[in-house]
Amino acid sequence: MRAFELRHLGIDATTISRAVERGDLVRVARGLYQKSDGQVDGEQALAEASRLVPKGVIAMLSALAYHGVTDQMPRKVWLAIGSKDWAPKVSYPPVHFVRLGANYLNQGIEHHMISGVSVPIYGVAKTLADIFRHPKLIDRSMAIDSLRQTLTNRKATAAQIAEAAKSGRVWKTVQPYLEAMTSNG
């Protein structure tokens, strides 16, 4: 929980500090606390980043890794925020911000429970469109490999990927790869 949520429940800062000293709570990051006996997921960094940046959506490499369509494990949590949103300083977990326009920011969001937190994460098709849309951030070969793994593991259909690519305005880039991977020839 975030510190302000604990204060909203009537727990003051002194009580929070005492709970940390006793070992009842663990201070994960500034203003972020977890019960000492709380369940820890492998993706807990995603939940922590989501709590610290409430307007953020797990995106790009972090979303690909969460959905299991890349072999790479990102060193930072990739978070999409609005083009004019404030990007807070986050000491832990390390965060890489990607700025998206308001109309594109709210497309393709799914909510997944991680460590008891509802975390907004972009769906596979939307994430693929994003990585093809930002070739300076993510290498094209990785985008192609993720597209291949998505189709092989049936994480999204070719139609869903095509729809996301069209709404993300990268259909002309994605189309030849998608056609090559789905042709029966």
Rank of each mutant, 00 (worst) to 15 (best):
R2P: 01
A3F: 04
F4P: 08
E5N: 12
I11L: 09
T14L: 12
T15G: 01
T15V: 05
R18D: 02
A19V: 06
V20M: 11
V20H: 13
D24H: 13
V28R: 15
R30W: 13
R30L: 12
L32E: 14
Y33D: 14
Q34A: 11
S36P: 04
D37Y: 15
D37P: 07
D41A: 06
E43L: 13
Q44S: 11
A45K: 03
L52T: 01
L52K: 02
L52Q: 12
P54S: 06
K55E: 15
G56R: 00
M60C: 07
A63T: 04
A63D: 06
L64H: 12
Y66I: 00
H67M: 06
H67K: 09
V69N: 01
Q72L: 08
Q72R: 12
R75W: 04
V77N: 02
W78Y: 08
W78D: 06
L79H: 01
A80S: 13
G82M: 06
S83W: 05
S83H: 11
A87C: 06
A87T: 15
P88R: 15
Y92R: 15
P93T: 08
P93V: 08
V95E: 04
H96D: 12
H96W: 03
F97I: 02
F97S: 07
F97H: 09
F97V: 03
V98N: 06
L100R: 04
L100E: 06
L100A: 07
Y104T: 05
Y104I: 03
L105W: 01
L105C: 06
Q107V: 13
Q107H: 14
Q107T: 05
G108A: 05
E110R: 07
H111T: 14
H112R: 12
S115P: 02
G116M: 09
G116R: 11
V119F: 00
Y122Q: 03
Y122A: 02
Y122P: 01
G123H: 11
G123R: 09
K126W: 00
T127V: 04
L128D: 06
A129V: 04
I131Q: 09
R133Y: 08
H134I: 06
P135I: 03
K136L: 12
K136G: 07
D139I: 15
M142N: 09
D145E: 12
R148L: 08
Q149N: 13
Q149A: 11
L151W: 14
T152F: 08
R154D: 06
A156S: 10
T157L: 04
T157M: 02
T157N: 04
Q160S: 10
A164F: 03
A165H: 04
K166M: 14
K166Y: 05
S167H: 10
W171N: 00
W171G: 00
W171P: 00
K172E: 15
K172V: 09
V174H: 09
V174D: 14
Q175H: 12
Y177P: 01
Y177D: 01
E179R: 14
M181D: 10
M181R: 09
T182P: 03
T182W: 04
T182A: 03
G185V: 00
G185E: 00
